[in-house]
Simulated assay, not measured.
Amino acid sequence: MSVSRPVSASETAELPFDLLRRRYGADQSDQTSDWNAVVETILSHRSIRAYLPEKVPESALQLIVAAAQSAPTSSSLQAWSVVAVEDPDRKAKLAELASPNPQILSAPLFLVWLADLSRLRKISVDQGKTGEGLDYFESFLLGAIDAALAAQNALVALESLGLGSCYIGGMRNHPAEVGAVLGLPPETFAVFGMTVGYPDASVETEVKPRLPQSLVLHREQYQVSAHEPALAAYDDTMRSFQAGQGMATRGWTAVAANRIADTASLKGRHVLLDVVRRMGFRTK
């Protein structure tokens, strides 16, 4: 028996001002004159953690990867790769390493996005060069940025196809063990994972409000003034959102402060540089 799929964002169009209001948790000035379907898909984004059991078609996966490869890449080095995981046992191992994280189990497809310098290292050796440029932090950062740009392109593409997704930063909790599960060669690193599947419509998921633009948009130079009133207003917005979702009403600033409070709050990631070096990166 086939499972009915959700329709794409373009088939469930919302009015532009409704999407903007939901994105910021408040009415916005008119920003809709340049509205189009791509902007609608992006502003409709929400993290999906409950999925139907239907498999993601191979054709959709290939299209998603094509979208990822259409993202910008520094110096055209394309220093990223992605591992598509569908095997239940392998997903279970990765879910356990990521906190644990049960949504990895429920998603029919799990994508692990890699900073990948291994391919460039081999090319360098084959060309009779040392590849010394790969030994510096810049190259590791380049790979992580390339992976992030590619993954975000993929996310927009898959959401336009009616699929849902959620980023999984927990891949960095135990990166060496993740590398072993995925058979990663030296100088490859799982930057994050991404659950992918058709959303379970019985589990309602709202758009989470973001910081007001006054806090993130600066003109000509960085402006520090007037942060406090804007942050207080955003805390109120987030408390309203949290109450509506049945979550603890803690606002945003307290949650953010706790997430960076101390070493323990990093969930083992404070030793990432040492682990990265043990995984073959010569980062200095």
Rank of each mutant, 00 (worst) to 15 (best):
G128H: 11
H174L: 10
T12A: 15
A257H: 06
S160A: 09
R219W: 09
M194W: 04
L182N: 07
D30A: 00
S10L: 08
V191M: 05
I64M: 10
A154E: 07
R259P: 02
R23F: 04
D126F: 14
T130C: 09
W113T: 09
A151D: 04
S225L: 13
L20Y: 01
G251Q: 03
L134W: 06
A71S: 12
A201G: 01
S70R: 07
K284D: 15
G183I: 07
Q242H: 07
A67R: 09
A84S: 11
P212L: 14
S265A: 15
E206C: 07
R278F: 07
S225H: 12
I168D: 09
G128E: 06
A98C: 15
E86M: 05
V216H: 01
R259L: 12
K55Y: 07
R210A: 09
A154Y: 11
A60V: 13
D236M: 06
T205A: 15
S4D: 09
E228G: 03
Q62N: 12
S265H: 11
R278C: 13
V275G: 05
V38A: 08
A92H: 01
E177V: 12
A71I: 02
A148F: 03
E204Q: 15
Y51P: 01
I260T: 14
L43Y: 08
R119K: 11
I48Q: 13
L20N: 01
L141C: 10
G131A: 15
S44L: 08
G133C: 01
G268T: 14
P175M: 14
R278S: 07
Y222V: 04
D126W: 11
V112S: 05
F110Q: 04
Y51V: 12
V38H: 05
P100K: 14
R250P: 00
A37C: 08
T130Y: 00
S225M: 10
P229D: 04
E177D: 14
S202Y: 02
T41A: 10
S47C: 11
P108G: 07
K91P: 01
W113I: 13
T263C: 10
T130I: 07
L94G: 03
E54Q: 13
V196W: 08
V65S: 04
S74A: 10
I123F: 10
